[in-house]
Design a protein around this nucleic acid. Structure first.
Lengths: 120, 120
DNA sequence: GTCTTGCTTATCCATGTGGCTAAGTATTTC
DNA sequence: GAAATACTTAGCCACATGGATAAGCAAGAC
């Protein structure tokens, strides 16, 4: 019953790909809030809005708990770690590659132009 | 003709929300590659694959140029900056808020337990 | 010149997504 | 207990998305 979906990059990126949902995250970053308060700024019916909240929860970005008739939502920034890790890795690979190219070019330039480069 | 879409968070997050497209980005991070080479690892028809490439280009993550009959694609990591900036901001807001709560709790604890907290 | 290669364009189809309304349920409040 | 509040559930609809096939086309290879 307390089933918790594993946090996947698919769900995370998809959750953040919508302006309404990003706005909710931004609002929750300021502090926890009940559903009605989160929904207020968005010009749409409650059920539509709830679907957005659902996707944020499924992505692991938000958790919520119901007390009485009010559901309070909380931001869980740890979920963003997976995104940043992925991005960092890609950038690292790319810049690492550029660095190697750079050093190669440098070593070519350093040698007397007539000699071919050492490949050891 | 040389119209370049503005890089939006919507397009970026959506582009990265698909495993095929993330794999392409990962592959391109290792260095530029022609379409056929990028498509090879993915078990789908070329036109289907091209749609993925398209979305990566529209998002600004990839650019491509055709020489002869071959189209070579290049990774453009600058596009990822927008994503990281957004994520950083949300986290900063959240942790900033936690810090303030922390200081408040600290100052409450520092006062003699009988006195109510100053609200100035 | 014909053949092959490497895309490209045009459709099509199933499913997912983002919106809606209508009606239901569980707390408070009066 | 009746009424208002705060969601919930169910179902519908339009359009986007991820896949497919079929046919076209320009550049190289032979």
């Amino acid at each position: 019953m307390d089933k918790q979906d594993p946090i996947t990059l698919d769900a995370l990126f998809a959750a953040l790909a919508d302006p309404t949902r990003r706005a909710v995250v931004a609002q929750l970053a300021e502090g926890p809030a009940p559903v009605s308060e989160l929904a207020a700024p968005h010009d749409m019916a409650l059920p539509s809005f709830l679907k957005h909240l659902d996707r944020l929860e499924k992505a692991g970005l938000v958790r919520s708990e119901k007390t009485g008739r009010v559901r309070v939502c909380t931001f869980h920034p740890e979920a963003l770690q997976a995104v940043e890790t992925w991005i960092d890795r890609q950038r690292r690979i790319w810049t690492g590659r550029l660095d190697r190219l750079d050093r190669l070019a440098q070593s070519l330039a350093d040698q007397s132009p007539s000699k071919p480069p050492e490949t050891s």
